[in-house]
Design a protein around this nucleic acid. Structure first.
Lengths: 332, 332
DNA sequence: CTGAAAGCGCTTACAG
DNA sequence: CTGAAAGCGCTTACAG
């Protein structure tokens, strides 16, 4: 941490008090045009940059926002993080970034650190089972936005995608295109958001078309290899399976490769629908039919809601749930 | 930015001076066991967390490190960022994250902000043409590590991959597997690192096998659609092309899809080699032969070198260039 | 082993 | 329109 010019350095050069420089730098008004020009010249000459540490100590605004993801290598995450980072910059805030690795302990460490650094607020993709932990920070006055989950708590907002409906759309699409023996490869991580996707999936079978059989469900790790394992399990139960809905696109890819390796053709023998529409999905062969999430929209809403919370900490915002859309490609 | 318990709150509760609490919290020694226990109890009870803003103001160590990427949605980046973030956490530092979008102006904004927040150092994937900008910050005392480029400057280290050799390996592999009419799809962004890859590519043709023709080169945007356009351009020049080396995997995917769309079989008619080994490359059909970069290694080295620079700001580190490896899959 | 004083670089509240 | 004083929450340098 190098030392640059200070308010006093600028003041000494111009021959005014630090208070006057502060007024000009923050454009508070109450100074003459001559003073303004001379101060700004000195600021330029000395390369003065205000020290946010000193400013934050007084104003209780550090100009920083925490972004806590699960794992940056999740292909769903980077586009969201990029959007959040851009939106934050436009409001003059810088992003602290950290991963919780889906682990409650690690998330606790991360929040301790963010608290120490006096962040103005945090956007978090919560580790499973950490809502109480988060609510604790919200109670202590930290503005918090939970992404990808539906939570109601004072000083804590939540924004998420309507993936219950996404699962309905996926299953209905499989049924509408003539599939009758359908399986879902779900996630073995048991949190409300995984359960919602399963609920939507089953909901589509409440008034099934003629000939549709009861759907199958397996739960595996939400990874490529998990998806492959899930497909194997489903085929053991039911070798004549003709449609798959996977919890996410990575699992769908795994299932697709495993099906092809077992001699099934996609989509001729088995149709596959994923979820998330990650960048890779359009580039696969065959292209993956999936549920598209408007990630730029979620990024923008998350930052917007967080800023509202920062300005008005007592408000009790209602959870925001964004619509999703089926994208049909060659895998169905 | 909420207000938590302060050193004084803890001191008042125990009945000692803030100075004593400071000693215990920082484990400086010079206190009795009784005092230690009572202070730590009070710290626990009050949920005291040191304010890094106040501490940083005095110590000139903020406990933060900047990570400046080009664009988080570049599939090469997230695994690196995750590694850097984990390594930083182990040394008790938190990451400020920002993208420069490959733009010099934006990078300048980002650095102004990082300077204001008094980062202890920065790891940067530089925007094209910004070495002078970065050298300026290094000169002002900011420890800096440049990734993916070779730079020599006081107080500034650089770590990168030997992609000149990677290009040699790629071209030699194409030649060794019998390809004779080979093209390279290069990047239109003109910086030393793109030129190095082209140099390596040509180097492999300095003593070519019998029948090998002079290679072709086109330069396009380093994206999927750029790769597709690049392949079209190469085929216009030379419809009997039988081997391609692409600047990165995204371009290789674009070239692969474009070749297939034009009726060429991969690898039967045209073999394709990419570069970077992003996660997607193993999941394509056919799987992409490419140059693997040891990203965890680079992350670890970047943080290690940065910490050395933070401890010893005057040292003049030699650029670190890491070896790379060809990964053969079905596209060749 | 412990504490009073000064000060990091700013802003707030006040006086002129 | 301008400035002197106090203080944010800590650490440093010193005294006892």
């Amino acid at each position: 941490m190098p030392r640059g010019a200070t308010l006093r350095d600028v003041a000494d050069r111009v021959g005014v008090s630090p208070r006057t420089v502060s007024r000009v730098v923050n454009d508070e008004g109450g100074f003459s045009e001559v003073t303004r020009v001379r101060v700004l010249e000195a600021v330029e000459d000395l390369g003065y940059q205000p020290n946010m540490l000193a400013r934050g100590l007084i104003t209780h605004r550090s100009g920083t926002v925490g972004l806590v993801g699960v794992d940056m290598t999740d292909p769903f995450f980077p586009a969201m993080a990029e959007g959040i980072q851009n939106a934050a910059r436009e409001t003059g805030r810088t992003i602290f970034f950290a991963s919780n690795d889906g682990d409650s302990q690690r998330q606790a460490e991360v929040f301790r650190s963010l608290w120490s650094h006096a962040v103005d607020g945090v956007i978090v993709f919560p580790a499973p089972g950490t809502i109480d932990q988060l609510a604790g920070y919200a109670r202590r006055g930290m503005p918090l936005v939970v992404v990808d989950d539906i939570v109601e708590f004072p000083n804590l907002a939540s924004v998420s995608f309507d993936l219950e409906d996404g699962a309905v759309q996926a299953a209905q699409h499989l049924l509408a295109t003539g599939r009758r023996r359908i399986g879902m490869i779900g996630s073995e991580i048991t949190v409300p958001r995984t359960r919602r996707r399963e609920r939507g999936f089953y909901q589509a079978f409440e008034s099934p078309p003629v000939g549709a059989e009861l759907p199958e469900l397996v739960r595996v790790q939400p990874t490529v290899s998990g998806g492959a394992a899930g497909l194997q399990k489903l085929l053991e139960r039911r070798p004549d399976l003709d449609g798959i809905f996977a919890y996410n696109d990575l699992m769908a890819v795994g299932a697709m490769r495993a099906a092809q390796a077992s001699g099934y053709r996609v989509p001729d023998d088995i149709a596959i629908v994923g979820c998330n529409d990650i960048e890779m999905s359009a580039l696969l062969n065959p292209g993956l039919t999936t549920i598209r999430l408007d990630r730029p929209r979620l990024s923008a809403e998350a930052i917007r809601v967080l800023h509202e919370l920062i300005e008005e900490p007592t408000s009790n915002p209602t959870p925001l749930v964004l619509p999703v859309e089926l994208v049909i490609r060659e895998s169905t």
